[in-house]
């Protein structure tokens, strides 16, 4: 008798789960990419979860005064950086101290932010939400606002079958959306995956120069090895010591995360401080503009004046190659856009 009652309860609980089982979304790992770092097992991606994450990403409710959403600083047209800003602009027009990082292929990343201070994608949104110069909010207050919203309560209920919105589900939803931001369909990708795309002579030569002179740091088809290095973009570290701020090691003063170069045509201004405006300026920087300091990468110390020699032709070809990393599908994908 007891057992039958028991089975009945178990059945009711189990069927509730089955009904809520939403369409799972398979994150396809591009064949030219390494395995994801993010544990997709611990956050089962579903259609509804991604959709909810997208709504949260574009909702100003996450900021103190309703003015700023994640999408305000991470805009799709510019590969999810803030267009034409060197330092990002947040609530009440407060200005941050760093250039925003483009958001793409985050599930393949070992650490986040220019100094790598965060190592779990799930915790990246808290950084923006609680940063005084970004969204200026408190996570517990955001949860209160969400729990007071009939719309969000209904959406979380439909997605996870829960009555109250927790830290975990809120953050996991944003991660679900971020996980779908995979950029791997540029002309370059289709060329290396032999999907019928051809690169012209300049672009191909640019690729070879890149392999020769840039790929020690901007390595693999993620175009970063995830390490922290000093590329001489500045020698003034008074206001931003980069990786040192996390490790406190002297050797790390002035080292910043090697950024991916995907969609780099649209992510300017460049570098952690947004100090370089165009790809041409970036290349001239590597050729002649490098500012030496103690932690400058040894790669750049192979000639008298620090840097990597690039003549006019090489620069032109490199730019041609870098533009093949533009992924139009990603930049215009409706599933990633606000509306």
């Amino acid at each position: 008798m007891y057992l039958i009652f028991f089975l009945m309860i178990a059945f009711v609980v189990a069927s509730a789960f089955v009904i809520d089982d939403d369409q799972p979304v398979k994150i396809v790992v591009p064949s030219n990419f390494p395995a994801p770092v993010y544990n997709l097992e611990k956050n089962k991606i579903t259609q509804k979860g991604v959709e909810l994450g997208r709504q949260l990403f574009y909702d100003g409710l996450l900021s103190i005064d309703g003015s700023t959403s994640c999408g305000s600083c991470h805009q799709q047209v510019s590969a999810f950086v803030q267009q034409d800003h060197d330092f990002s602009h947040g609530v009440e027009n407060r200005i941050g101290r760093r250039n925003a990082l483009p958001l793409a292929n985050l599930i393949f990343s070992k650490s986040f932010f220019w100094d790598g201070g965060v190592f779990n994608l799930d915790l990246t949104p808290v950084n923006a939400i609680e940063n005084e110069v970004e969204m200026g909010e408190n996570l517990d207050h955001v949860l209160k606002k969400l729990n007071a919203s009939l719309l969000y309560k209904a959406r979380f209920k439909a997605t996870y079958g829960v009555d109250s919105i927790t830290t975990n589900l809120f953050l996991k939803s944003i991660s679900q959306f971020l996980a779908t931001m995979v950029s791997a369909n540029s002309r370059y990708d289709k060329y290396v995956r032999k999907e019928g795309e051809v690169l012209n002579a300049d672009e191909l030569e640019g690729l070879n120069i890149f392999k020769d002179k840039c790929s020690t740091c901007h390595s693999s088809d993620l175009f970063t090895d995830g390490s922290f290095r000093n590329n001489g973009s500045t020698a003034d570290f008074r206001f931003d010591k980069g990786r040192h701020e996390i490790t406190l090691a002297d050797a790390d003063i002035g080292k910043f995360k090697v950024p991916s170069l995907r969609n780099v045509e649209f992510t300017g201004p460049y570098m952690h401080d947004g100090s370089l405006q165009s790809l041409e300026e970036v290349l001239e920087h590597y050729n002649s503009g490098m500012k030496a300091s103690a932690s400058l990468d040894p790669v750049f110390k192979k000639r008298d004046k620090p840097g990597i020699s690039l003549d006019g032709n090489e620069k032109r070809k490199l730019v041609a190659f870098l533009k093949t990393l533009t992924d139009q599908e990603f930049l215009t994908n409706k599933k990633l856009s606000e509306f």
């Binding site: 932010f113 609680e130 996570l139």
Partner: peptide
Amino acid sequence: NTMDIARRTGALDVGGTAKGMYWIWNS
């Protein structure tokens, strides 16, 4: 400090009890 957020409940909930007791910029 490095565990999945699903298991950081109670005193360790960064959006609840642990408010103000978590470094957002340096996990």
